[in-house]
Write a protein that binds this DNA or RNA. Structure first.
Length: 269
DNA sequence: TAACCGTGGGC
DNA sequence: TGCCCAAGGTT
């Protein structure tokens, strides 16, 4: 849930989620569509699907337990190098090199003297993080947490609070006179994209208790429908039929939706 | 490698 | 008001 999503937005969903599915086996026994629905508006709904798949794998291959090694964690769907390292370190006390967006930014400034880390994680960054990580496991866990928190609370992306920084005197970026970024971060297109349409269709599917006829998704003539507000959001996008078709096809391909007997679509069972 | 994948808070 | 950004992963 925390992948690319602020902690404060995750917390309420996470709490409800764990009350409903306290362990991997409980989640594995639910339909994947229920996981997608409970995911709510956290975004990137494929993460819900992958979490459900990971729970199924843990139920079947790991006695219903979350594996405690980096390698086993990495093999789970939706778990990459960051998540595997974070769980190994913070849940199991392992020495694992955690590299998240906060740690990357702290290293970029403190060590490399640049305003921002590279656009994508590089091998050099991973090597640096691995080199800096204390050898002793207990200290390494503390180090990971400390650097991450420094980035989250002090060495922030927008306006870092250097005056409050405990390592300001060691900072290469400050010493260099706070040089500006050497590249322009390019934001992701949103308005008018398939992505936006996918999101709106998913919101309709989550709001609907059962499946929906495709006609309902295409024609703005059902504002009195129980899922009317989400349908209205979809209609407001004024997507071409071809784009809506493409978005739906993508959702079916990704397993976020499935075709129903009556020719409609629904969340997966 | 680079594109793709959601959402909403904050500046 | 838009735009940036957030505990990334997969193809």
């Amino acid at each position: 849930m925390l992948q690319q999503t602020p902690v404060t937005r995750v917390l309420p969903v996470w709490q409800d989620w764990l009350l409903r599915w306290p362990d991997p086996t409980a989640l594995a026994q639910a339909p994947s569509g229920e996981a997608v629905r409970a995911w709510g508006r956290l975004g990137y709904p494929r993460r819900a699907l992958r979490l459900h798949a990971a729970a199924t794998l843990m139920a079947n291959e790991h006695d219903g337990e979350v594996p405690g090694s980096y390698a086993a964690l990495l093999s789970l769907p939706g778990v990459g190098s960051y998540t595997a390292a974070a769980v190994a370190a913070f849940a199991f006390g392992c020495r694992a090199t955690v590299v998240d967006t906060n740690i990357r930014r702290v290293h970029a400034r403190l060590i490399s003297g640049t305003a921002l880390p590279a656009p994508a994680l590089t091998a050099a960054e991973t090597r640096l993080a691995d080199h800096l990580l204390p050898t002793e496991p207990g200290q390494s866990v503390r180090w990971n947490a400390a650097v991450m928190e420094l980035g989250a609370l002090i060495c922030t992306a927008r306006s870092p609070n250097c005056a409050q920084c405990p390592v300001q005197e060691k900072c290469a970026w400050l010493a260099a006179g706070e040089p500006a970024p050497t590249y322009q971060p390019k934001g992701q297109a949103w308005a008018g994209t398939d992505r936006q349409v996918r999101g709106a269709v998913m919101a309709v599917l989550r709001a609907a208790g059962t499946g929906l006829q495709r006609g309902l998704l295409f024609a703005p003539a059902h504002s009195e429908h129980p899922v009317g507000s989400e349908l209205a959001r979809l209609y407001r996008l004024n997507a071409e039929e071809s784009q809506l078709e493409r978005a739906i096809a993508g959702l079916l391909t990704d397993g976020l939706a499935q075709a129903t007997d009556g020719g409609g679509i629904a969340l997966p069972a």
